[in-house]
Amino acid sequence: MKKWAKGLAFVLLASSLLMAGCGAKKEEKPKVAEKTKVAFVLVSPAKDGGWSESHENGRIYLEKNLPNVETTVVASVPEGADSERVISQLASQGNKVIFTTSFGYMDPTLNVAKKFPDVVFMHASGFKSEKNMGNYFGRIYEARYLTGMVAGKETQSNVIGYVAAFPIPEVVRGINAFTLGVKAVNPNAKVKVIWTNTWYDPAKEKQAALSLIDAGADIITQHQNTTGPQQAAQERGKFGIGYNLDMSAVAPKAVLTSAIWNWGPFYKKVVEGVQNGTWKMENYWGGMKDGVVDIAPYGPMVKEDTRKIVDAAKQGIKDGKLMIFKGPLKDQEGNLKIADGQVMADKELLSFDWFVEGVEGNIAK
Rank of each mutant, 00 (worst) to 15 (best):
R236K: 14
V69D: 11
L210F: 03
E357N: 13
D346W: 10
G242Y: 03
N95E: 05
F355Q: 04
G104S: 09
Q93F: 05
V41W: 00
G161M: 09
K128I: 03
V274D: 07
T179W: 02
Y200V: 04
G361W: 04
N132D: 15
V41I: 12
K35P: 02
V150P: 10
D346F: 06
M281N: 12
I324A: 13
H223F: 05
K31S: 11
Y243I: 12
P169T: 07
M281F: 04
V11W: 14
D294E: 13
D290Q: 15
K96F: 02
T155W: 08
L90M: 00
G174Y: 08
V163Q: 03
I60V: 13
E304R: 09
Q207S: 15
G134N: 04
I260F: 13
S76G: 07
V293P: 00
V274M: 14
T278S: 08
V69T: 15
V86S: 09
E63G: 10
M281K: 15
K192F: 15
T147V: 14
G334Q: 00
V182C: 01
V41M: 01
T226P: 01
G341L: 06
Y243A: 08
I324P: 03
M344E: 08
K6W: 14
G242K: 00
D340A: 10
G228A: 01
M281E: 12
N135D: 05
K64E: 10
F121L: 08
T72A: 05
I168D: 07
K96A: 07
E282Q: 11
L8C: 07
N132K: 13
Y145E: 01
A345F: 09
Q230A: 01
D319R: 06
G161D: 04
I175F: 00
V270H: 04
G316D: 02
P187K: 14
K128R: 14
F355W: 11
R139I: 06
S16T: 15
A296K: 08
P30Q: 12
E154R: 14
S248H: 05
G320C: 10
E63V: 12
V171L: 13
G104K: 06
A189P: 15
S54M: 04
T221D: 08
D346H: 02
F137W: 06
I60D: 07
A217Y: 03
A339G: 12
N65M: 10
M149G: 09
N225R: 07
G291E: 03
L62E: 01
I219C: 06
M1H: 11
N135P: 04
S83T: 15
A251E: 00
D294P: 10
R85I: 09
H123N: 01
A249N: 04
K29E: 13
T100V: 07
K131Q: 15
G174M: 08
L146R: 11
I87P: 06
A164Q: 02
K192S: 12
A296P: 13
D218E: 15
D319I: 06
N362G: 15
E235G: 09
T101C: 14
M344W: 12
N111V: 01
I213W: 03
A189C: 09
K308F: 02
V69R: 11
T306H: 03
L13Y: 00
K2P: 05
E130C: 13
Q332G: 10
V73R: 08
L349N: 01
W195G: 11
F121R: 01
G104P: 11
